[in-house]
């Protein structure tokens, strides 16, 4: 399996048209801010030497579980789940990193969700290892992973109600 084939499968599974723009920001920046993909191809091959990744896919928030299933099917392992707070755009980005233990391919799946109501389905049913990564992301960004079995703070104190990696977190 190559990155091309994978990109092909991504575009068949997730036609861009089905992804509604999730932006809620006033200026209406489109959901795929970082990787400006062509409308028909959610996944783009990237040069590993330049980016550290073979394939990047930007999906709608509802599609991440299907993407995780696709990755699982192809024998990928979960690398990390993390968030980025795009304060100016009023969005949160969730990045799912996968690596392939046999052929070494690296895939990053991205999804953007509105900052006011950051909710995204959990992939911990597909990859149990995502459980902790999602808990950590919930700790740091307050992103709610719907369907997650236990979103109590993992690394932060058990009574923490703040989310330190949000850009408007002041530390007080």
């Amino acid at each position: 399996m190559s990155a091309e084939e994978l990109a092909e499968r991504f575009s068949r599974l997730f036609p861009r048209a089905s992804a509604p723009p999730e932006s809620t920001s006033a200026d209406g920046v489109s959901a795929d801010g970082v990787v400006p993909a062509e409308p028909s191809r959610p996944a783009q091959e990237t040069e590993h030497a330049a980016r550290g990744c073979h394939l990047e896919a930007t999906l709608a928030s509802g599609e991440v579980v299907a993407a995780a299933r696709l990755m699982d099917e192809h024998g990928f392992a979960i690398d990390a789940v993390t968030g980025v707070d795009w304060l100016a755009e009023g969005q949160m980005e969730v990045i799912y990193d996968y690596f392939h233990p046999v052929n070494g391919l690296r895939v990053a799946v991205r999804a953007r969700i509105p900052r006011e109501n950051p909710e995204i389905p959990t992939v911990s049913e597909v990859f149990p290892g995502a459980n902790w990564h999602e808990r950590e992301t919930h700790d740091f960004f307050g992103i709610r992973f719907t369907g997650h079995p236990d979103l109590t703070p993992l690394l932060l104190p058990e009574d923490a109600v703040y989310h330190p990696l949000r850009k408007d977190f002041s530390g007080e």
Partner: peptide
């Protein structure tokens, strides 16, 4: 290991020759 993303000697101890020095 794959489901949890375990790497290093843990996955190599499960028979998968995954080593970043080789794969990336």
């Amino acid at each position: 290991c794959r489901k949890y993303g375990a790497t290093g000697p843990v996955i190599r101890g499960a028979g998968v020759p995954y080593d970043v020095r080789r794969s990336e």
